[in-house]
Design a protein around this nucleic acid. Structure first.
Length: 444
RNA sequence: GCGUCAUUGGUGAAGUGGUUAACACGCUGGUUUGUGGCACCAGUACGCGAGAGUUCGAUUCUCUCAUGGCGCCCCA
């Protein structure tokens, strides 16, 4: 049997509804912040992700899903969204657009060639946002605000923003050296991986799970202490702007990005719910002023983030958030004979065009099993078609909650549905409650 | 790439080197010729991830592969 590829998943049924709902919230909130939807190719030239030199070059090529196409071109499936967006910005000369900065959001599948494990598949979905063309800290703050808005709108509550700065290249290099000087004399006390990391990417020692109790970790120098004035001021501004928007955050000196094009602001958002397990980070991002130049475009400052949709689903699960996913259908048509079947088809079609969700029997099973099916589909009403009734221009409709049955004129079927399903009841809208929440907002 | 545990029907799963692979849910039909969700009865794996080996005989033992879970590396 042909099975799906390692590290891929099929999304369908109720889970698919969740994903669609998340997508719709991302769209809605991003549009409110005036971010434009961008869709870049899933495959790109390998070198887009394998540019230049740096600590992480080996890693990037090791885990990139790449291949030679029939023309001998080296193709990579995109491992992340940012590089493609920056490439598109440059290639389409969007830097020439009079409205700057350009603000983008995307949502799509990404690929990494690695062994699947908890929360990590080979094909996975990320949504993300980028601001290109602004070096002002307001953009750092806004992009974080957008992320928080999306998560809040989804119903997540246990959110923690962790913020740090890597400073500019000068500050970063200085810090890097100080860090090496700090760990090097005692590197024997650390794990094998850290002994590697001190040469390849010393910042990542701070992330080590094995050595995190080592006293040198706590006494390790902090990036903040090695910032030059410009970098420090910028970091303070980012915090100031977050304060203005009332966004809680925590400065965490251990937040570090693996890739070397990051500078200045870096951040992560965690879901702190105890049910989350090991993978608490649901979003990561930062400023990448050097990236555009690395891919041979005009120097363009940028800041953005990406969030794994799978992790967000996990977070919703962990927090027990009930998504307002409308399941169930308005009407299910039952029939037995062929004449009734045609009527089912006719009226189902009519109701669908009037905007109702309707289904009917396909397999011609017993009435008993049709009732069961209607229940499974969570039908609010069941129409039991009967030749006798149809002759009189009538349809028997059963309310599947109350089990009450009434005979309705077939002509007035849509009117019947309008009356039953389309009216606002007092319970749907609690005006006082709405006003109360509005007031609280205004008081702030 | 490394380590580790797993893989039995539509689903959850039990199980043994040897005539019929439990049990439950579900599904189909019937009791009840076209108003169900209850109850009872019956049916429901030419098959135990794939391939090879050991054996008189393997779903059960061994090996290889595939996939999954967890962890490591790495994490954009």
């Amino acid at each position: 049997m042909i099975q799906r590829q390692k590290g891929t998943i099929d999304i369908y049924g109720d889970i698919a509804k969740k994903w669609k709902y998340i997508d719709s919230i991302v769209d809605m909130v991003a549009e409110k912040y005036n971010y434009g939807y961008i869709r870049t190719p899933i495959f790109e030239d390998f070198s887009l992700f394998h540019r230049g030199i740096g600590d992480s070059t080996d890693i990037v090529s090791k885990e990139t899903y790449d291949f030679l196409d029939k023309g001998g071109r080296r193709i990579a499936l995109r491992p992340e969204g940012t590089a493609g967006v920056v490439r598109a910005y440059i290639e389409n000369k969007m830097f020439g657009d009079p409205v700057q900065p350009k603000k983008f959001y995307y949502n799509g599948t990404m690929y990494r060639y690695e062994r699947p494990q908890s929360g990590r598949d080979r094909e996975f979905t990320q949504f993300g946002a980028e601001i290109l063309g602004s070096d002002d800290p307001i953009s750092d703050a806004e992009v974080i605000a957008l992320a928080i808005s999306i998560f809040k709108m989804l119903g997540l509550k246990d959110l923690k923003v962790k913020l740090n700065t890597l400073g500019d290249t000068e500050s970063r290099n200085k810090y890097r050296q100080v860090l090496i000087d700090h760990f090097k004399p005692h590197i024997d006390e650390f794990c094998e991986d850290c002994k590697e990391r001190i040469n390849k990417n010393p910042l990542r020692i701070l992330d080590c799970k094995i050595d995190n109790e080592n006293k040198l970790m706590k006494t390790a120098p902090k990036t903040i202490d090695y910032l030059n004035d410009e970098s420090r001021e910028r970091f303070e501004k980012v915090q100031e702007y977050l304060d203005v928007m009332g966004i809680d955050y925590e400065v965490d000196p251990t937040i570090v990005r693996g890739l070397d094009y990051y500078n200045h602001t870096v951040f992560e958002i965690e879901d702190t719910n105890p049910n989350m397990g090991l993978n608490k980070v649901i979003l990561g991002g930062g400023r990448y002023n050097g990236l555009a130049e690395q891919i041979e475009g005009p120097a363009t400052p940028g800041v953005g983030w990406a969030s794994g949709a799978g992790r967000v689903v996990d977070a919703l699960e962990a927090e027990g958030v009930e998504l307002p996913i409308d399941d169930g259908i308005d009407m299910f048509f039952l029939y037995v004979n062929d004449e009734e079947k045609r009527s089912a088809l006719y009226y189902a079609n009519e109701l669908r065009e009037a905007g109702y969700s309707v289904d009917t029997e396909f397999t011609g099973k017993s009435l008993k099993s049709q009732f069961k099916k209607a229940d499974r589909l969570n039908a609010r009403y069941i129409a039991v078609l009967n030749s006798e009734d149809l002759k009189n221009g009538e349809i028997k409709i059963k309310n599947n909650q109350t089990k009450e049955e009434e005979v309705v004129s077939a002509e007035a079927l849509i009117y019947f549905m309008d009356e039953k399903l389309n009216t606002f009841s007092e319970e749907d809208f609690d005006i006082d409650e709405l006003m109360k929440t509005k007031k609280v907002k205004e008081d702030k």
